[in-house]
């Protein structure tokens, strides 16, 4: 379970304090699929960082009794002067798993083949994204965080990702943060809408959609 309790988050800006989240409360149970909808700038990325534990709230508490992934397929942490294999080893080291039996899986799944041993700066963006997704699948988290629609590589690779994530890991919790109602609706049973710093939860998708639609056009 992950529980956000009365979370507030504000940032210093040149215009003074800017409050992004105001008294946010939400609970994600084991195996639950939760979608968080919000317009651009609604605080979705802040939510992701708080949920993953990369950042601390200004006030409020976060309770975590299950392991939470880093944002799925996030490639920003790659050191591009290093090889894909070096980056794979780094991830394995910080999560305490043995990389030797993972190499083959990553090589095959990311379709990189022998390029895994080349510096990442020569990779295309598709290659980087595929590697990032493959690395996200190395650690068996209880809960996966997804920041925006997972659209990695071509249609075939996309299908492979869907299978790996939604079929093979159907028992895991998912938190999808997106502005795309359709995608969230397809995968989530519980929907939340982030608007003007407040988070509203809905069990009924139509209600959530109605609310989200109003929130978009309100401003």
């Amino acid at each position: 379970m992950i529980r956000l309790h009365d979370i507030c988050k504000s940032y210093h800006t040149s215009q003074g304090q800017h409050e992004v989240l105001k008294n946010v409360n939400v609970t994600v149970e084991r195996g639950q699929k939760v979608g968080i909808l919000g317009r651009n700038g609604a605080g979705k990325s802040t939510m992701i960082r708080l949920l993953s534990g990369a950042e601390r709230p200004t006030s409020g508490s976060i309770e975590r009794t299950m392991s939470v992934s880093w944002p799925l397929a996030f490639g920003g942490a790659f050191q591009t002067t290093l090889t894909g294999y070096d980056n794979l080893r780094f991830i394995c080291r910080i999560y305490g798993i043995d990389p030797t039996d993972k190499v083959e899986y990553v090589q095959e799944f990311s379709e990189l083949g022998s390029y895994l041993r080349e510096p990442m700066r020569i990779y295309s963006s598709g290659m980087r994204a595929r590697l990032a997704f493959a690395l996200s699948m190395l650690i068996e988290f209880d809960c996966f965080l997804i920041d925006e629609v997972v659209s990695v590589g071509d249609a075939r690779f996309h299908e492979k990702c869907q299978r790996e994530l939604f079929d093979k890991r159907a028992d895991r919790a998912l938190i999808i943060v997106s502005h795309d109602m359709g995608y969230v609706r397809e995968h989530c049973s519980k929907l939340c809408v982030l608007s003007q710093g407040h988070l509203s939860s809905f069990d009924d998708a139509d209600e959530a959609y109605e609310f989200y639609h109003r929130a978009i056009h309100l401003q």
Partner: peptide, 9 residues
């Protein structure tokens, strides 16, 4: 900074 998406870093 981006490494800190991994909570333990």
């Amino acid at each position: 900074l981006s490494l800190m998406y991994h909570r333990q870093v």
